[in-house]
Amino acid sequence: MLMRMNIRQAADYLNLPVQTLQRWIAQGFLPAPAGASLAPSFEKDWLTNWAKSKNLSVGAGAKESVPKATPARSLVQALERGGVFTDVQGDTVDEALAQAAVLSPVPRDHLTEFTRQLLDRERLCSTGQGKGVAIPHARRPIEDTGVEASITTCFLNTPLDFKAIDGKPVSTLFLLISPSVDVHLHLLSRLAFCLRDNSFVDFLSKKPLPVDLLAMAGEFEAKVAEAGL
């Protein structure tokens, strides 16, 4: 069946203002098929061909597909996906990071590469946030592996010197894995919001159970939503 469009629909289809189409008809650049110039109607196929011959992009809704709602944008879900581990071994920063990487949900065949990237990033600049917390992450998001965003929480056995800003030894790692930059920034900002609050830091130092941690993070995330961040 042939689909017919009026000028408004045609303009939407071509992502152009209606005035532009009206003008093109009046000037003769767009031959308006059958009927008075007042209410032209277009066949979809014909219009598509015409648009192609003029190098115009077609298809309504091309703009809408851009912002994809990713479920992993929630901090709680990311924490849940990453898992919470206590008594993580490691005498040096490198060892601790390698251990954390093993515990994280990174696909096994990417593990070596991912660990190397983690260490590279750590060497570039410390990920220690102060207050005994570090948020190690790889410099480039791992896009092609299809992983979802996750945060692996590791409570270290022995606090390590991450050369953090405040010089305190780090006892908690949040290993952040994200598929894209904006998800990365989003999760990082939420995490930072939590860490700004001293009660959360105190709570961390008690090495809480996974369930309690998630509940606490949930509370904070609700606050963030209120603040409109």
């Binding site: 003029k54 190098n55 115009l56």
Partner: peptide, 12 residues
Amino acid sequence: DHYRRELIVQTT
């Protein structure tokens, strides 16, 4: 954007 589109439409 519009300029370029206009040019194409007018000159092809």
